[in-house]
Design a protein around this nucleic acid. Structure first.
Lengths: 179, 179
DNA sequence: GAATACTTTCATTTTAAATTGAAATTATGT
DNA sequence: ACATAATTTCAATTTAAAATGAAAGTATTC
């Protein structure tokens, strides 16, 4: 039985343009091009897709398609759907934009914010030993400020991502109209 | 006259560790290693530094040291200080952590958020032409959500970065304690 | 329990980004 | 104007990340 054609795959000029843009955006966000492109493609597709369809529409190798699909599933941006009576797996993108952005934010927090917060422990580990004589008061001061801000952001982000509700919509709007 | 030694350069184990960590952090944030390292180094230094000092402490080529120092100045993270009676330029890092983080946020907004916001114009440019027949209602719906969120973030970020005041500290804290 | 259909892995290659270093340029002091 | 001391540029190289593709692995069906 053929893989393609169970559900019609639509691949219009608009969709192709979108995928191209999503890929570029992905690169700017530090996301592997193939990963962003696959995500973009699945965002445009009504129905779950099979690896071979992804491969051929985006001209990707099997290895890359597979690896990036896994990563997308790992991130929670894409769901694997098992086809009954077959080993074949199909993939659909998360449709809810809030869920989608949450997934991305969570990953970025892990990659970017958490390592920054770890500097606090590092700083404390040096607190006792007097390095030379007051080796860098300048650093300590700036770093304290940075860490304070980082943990404020961490707190807000934590709340934001923990909730399913969207109290943040109100909260953001309140931020918009000053104070 | 020798370049080094006008102001004593301090380069302790703690500082070296910090620079190493700052470099890694920079890489996670999509910043060139040399740029992050230089920034880290200048954050630890009491006094403005000359290109040759940066080069030798970090084992960088002149080209790289120069280019990345320019970038740091461009971003507003580092200030060039002209030495009187000499063509020599020295560099100091911005000390205020809020200013520092603002600079970074501004650059990231430019690189990451603005291109996302441009998708709105793109979407509208396709609004009229009916691509096939309802080519991708799925995409349109998710994309609308994403763009709404993006512009909310843009609004808040815009305010945050425009101000010199720190009303946001209160605002972030309020975000922390729910509602 | 083969044979088939699909998935997974991973050593090698490709690609894009960052770095190098030496030559060209420009400013400064004599 | 000259020599010197610094900065700036950029073609060539290096590096790290991502992509490839073929081989190995694993379910599923007959």
């Amino acid at each position: 039985m053929s893989n393609t054609g169970i559900n019609q795959v639509v691949w219009s000029a608009k969709q192709q343009e979108f995928v191209q843009k999503w890929r570029e955006l992905g690169v700017a966000w530090g996301i592997p091009p193939a990963m962003a492109a696959i995500h973009g493609l699945l965002m445009t597709q009504e129905h779950p897709m099979v690896t071979d369809e992804v491969m051929s529409l985006l001209s990707l190798s099997r290895g890359s398609a597979h690896t990036q699909l896994q990563a997308l599933v790992e991130w929670g941006l894409v769901y694997p759907v098992k086809t009954l009576g077959s080993r074949q797996v199909r993939y659909v993108a998360e449709r809810d934009s809030w869920q989608m952005m949450s997934c991305i934010a969570r990953q970025r927090k892990k990659r970017e914010l958490d390592p920054l917060l770890e500097l606090d422990a590092w700083k404390r580990s040096w607190a006792s030993k007097t390095d030379g004589l007051e080796a860098s008061a300048v650093l300590d001061k700036t770093l304290d400020g940075v860490l304070a801000q980082a943990s404020a952001v961490d707190g807000v982000l934590g709340r934001l991502l923990a909730e399913d509700e969207r109290w943040w919509e109100q909260w953001l709007l309140r931020g918009l109209r000053r104070n």
